[in-house]
Amino acid sequence: MNASAESQARTRFFARALGPFLVIVDVTAVARASDMQALLSQFEANSMWAFVSGAFILLFGLIMVAAHQYWTGAPAIIVSSLGWLIVLRGLLLVAFPRAFVAVANSMIGAQGWWVSLCIVFALVGLYLTYVGWAPASRRPASHPATAVPDLPRAA
């Protein structure tokens, strides 16, 4: 497998997982917009949640960044960018949980912006789902010409 085929395969792999995840989480968050303030208050009430969830988010983001270092083509750029955003989110949750909660509170307070951002990420998720699950374009494999064909000799 050449480098281009490997990068496309990894991008499709991550797109298959990230696409549906983004769609499901963002659509659910918009549908449960009225519950988000209560969920954030409960999350903020126990600092253990921020640390534990941040550690797992950070680990997942670092795995994504380590496994997907490709920046050619829109799907690859989106996947790599999401990996770095996940690393940043995990780092903020582990190292600066109060700052993360303050930003989350301000986002939920500006519900129009927050819902718009969720819709944008859901659309990105739909795009990644398509990229990841649509049949890959198949190019005919080129076979090198051999000097001696497998034909019987006439004489």
Results as ranks from 00 to 15, higher is better:
Gly73Trp: 08
Pro20Glu: 00
Gly61Phe: 00
Ala38Glu: 02
Tyr130Ser: 12
Leu85Gly: 09
Phe51Cys: 04
Gly109Asp: 07
Leu117Glu: 13
Leu126Ile: 09
Val148Phe: 15
His143Glu: 12
Ala104Gly: 04
Leu62Lys: 02
Pro20Asp: 02
Gly125Asn: 04
Leu62Val: 09
Ala99Gln: 00
Val23Glu: 01
Pro135Leu: 01
Val65Ser: 06
Trp84Val: 07
Cys118Leu: 08
Pro152Gln: 10
Leu18Tyr: 03
Ser81Ile: 04
Leu88Asp: 06
Ala55His: 01
Val23Met: 04
Leu151Asp: 13
Ser4Glu: 15
Phe21Pro: 03
Pro149Leu: 11
Ile108His: 06
Ala5Asn: 15
Phe43Asn: 02
Ala95Phe: 03
Leu82Trp: 07
Phe96Asn: 08
Arg32Gly: 12
Phe121Glu: 12
Ile108Val: 09
Val87Tyr: 02
Arg98Thr: 09
Val131Trp: 09
Gly19Phe: 02
Gly54Asp: 03
Ala122Met: 13
Gly73Phe: 07
Gln69Ala: 15
Phe56Pro: 05
His143Met: 13
Trp49Asp: 02
Ala95Pro: 01
Thr129Gly: 04
Ala102Asn: 06
Gln69Arg: 15
Ala102Pro: 05
Gly112Met: 10
Trp84Cys: 13
Leu40Pro: 10
Glu6Thr: 15
Arg153Ile: 05
Tyr70Thr: 14
Ala66Gly: 08
Arg16Phe: 05
Ala50His: 07
Gly19Leu: 04
Leu58Asn: 00
Ser116Lys: 06
Arg138Lys: 13
Gln111Glu: 14
Leu128Lys: 08
Thr72Arg: 15
Asp150Glu: 13
Ser81Lys: 12
Arg12Cys: 06
Leu151Val: 14
Phe13Asp: 00
Arg12Asn: 02
Ser4Gly: 15
Ile119Asp: 03
Leu151Trp: 12
Ala67Trp: 07
Arg16Lys: 13
Ile108Thr: 05
Pro20Phe: 01
Gly73Ser: 12
Trp113Gln: 11
Ser34Cys: 15
Leu91Cys: 03
Asn46Val: 10
Val23Ser: 03
Leu62Ile: 07
Arg16Met: 05
Pro149Asn: 13
Phe100Gln: 00
Ser116Tyr: 10
Phe56Ser: 08
Tyr70His: 15
Leu22Gln: 10
Ile78Cys: 05
Asn105Trp: 08
Val148Lys: 10
Phe21Thr: 04
Ser106Met: 10
Asp150Asn: 11
Val87Ile: 06
Ala134Gly: 01
Ala102Ser: 08
